[in-house]
């Protein structure tokens, strides 16, 4: 199955996100090789030029390193990986807090309801 893309943000950015998520989840480990542009294009049903652009973007931000004649690899620089993790965390929190505020929650309420949630689900497998 070709995984669908969400409609309003550029496809190359969504490809970048997917790859970063894989790195954070650990299914792409530091130092491992990314699929070639062609492989990823076929796999995700995306135009090779778009995949190329996503790879360029990842390289620019230091998340991947291109080795001549060998391909593109996930960086082994722990600082960049940590930065990426933190940026993703911030983004999710940002999104969550904005939605909570949209339904009229105060900061104290958000913190309390989060604590309550964790208490209730204690012993659960800590779903994110």
């Amino acid at each position: 199955m070709i995984e669908p893309f969400n409609p309003s943000s550029p496809i190359y950015l969504q490809l970048c996100e997917r790859i970063k998520n894989k790195i954070i989840r650990g299914s792409l480990v530091p130092g491992s090789r990314l699929p070639s542009v062609r492989e990823l294009a076929i796999d995700s049903g995306v135009n090779p030029n778009t995949v190329q652009r996503a790879y360029h973007e990842l390289e620019e931000s230091g998340v991947t390193v291109k080795k001549r004649g060998q391909g593109t690899f996930v960086t082994e620089d722990p600082e960049i990986l940590e930065q990426m993790r933190r940026a993703l965390l911030c983004r999710h929190i940002n999104h969550f807090v904005r939605q909570m505020k949209d339904i009229g929650c105060t900061e104290a309420e958000i913190v309390k309801s989060l604590n309550d949630y964790f208490k209730q689900n204690e012993g659960g497998e800590g779903q994110s």
Binding site: P7, S9, N47, T50
Partner: peptide, 10 residues
């Protein structure tokens, strides 16, 4: 395609 999504959010 990407600039339609980028600029017009469509």
């Amino acid at each position: 395609i990407e600039s339609i999504r980028d600029k017009e959010k469509l």
